[in-house]
Amino acid sequence: MKHIDCPGIGPRPIVEFIYDGEVRPPAPEDASLEVLADRVFNRSGAPGVLREWWYHRPTGSWYVLERDTVTNEIQRAVDPEEVAYAIPML
C-alpha cells in the first residue's frame, strides 16, 4: 500500500496522509461512566477489516476507509453519510 486511492483526489502517496485510528461511535449523551470509558479507551484490536480516519494534508480533507489490518489492503472508501451522526445540542 504505497498509495491510497480516495474519491475526488485519486491515488496519492501514503506519506501525504495522517492516520487517525479506528472510527468509534460517540457515547450517547446519557452514557454511564462505564460506557464512556469503553468508548474512550477500548479498541477493536484483533485483525480484521477496520474503518479508520485518514487525513489528506495537501487537500485538507478527511476520509473514512475500510482496510484489512492483516494484508494492509484498502477495500473501499466509506461514504461520509454512513458514519455521520448528529452533533449533540449543548
Binding site: F41, N42, R43, S44, G45, A46, P47
Partner: peptide
C-alpha cells in the same frame, strides 16, 4: 487482542 477476543475481554490495545 486475539486471545482477549477468545474470552470476550475488551482491551485498549492496538
Amino acid at each position: 487482542p486475539r486471545i482477549a477476543d477468545m474470552v470476550g475481554l475488551p482491551t485498549p490495545i492496538e
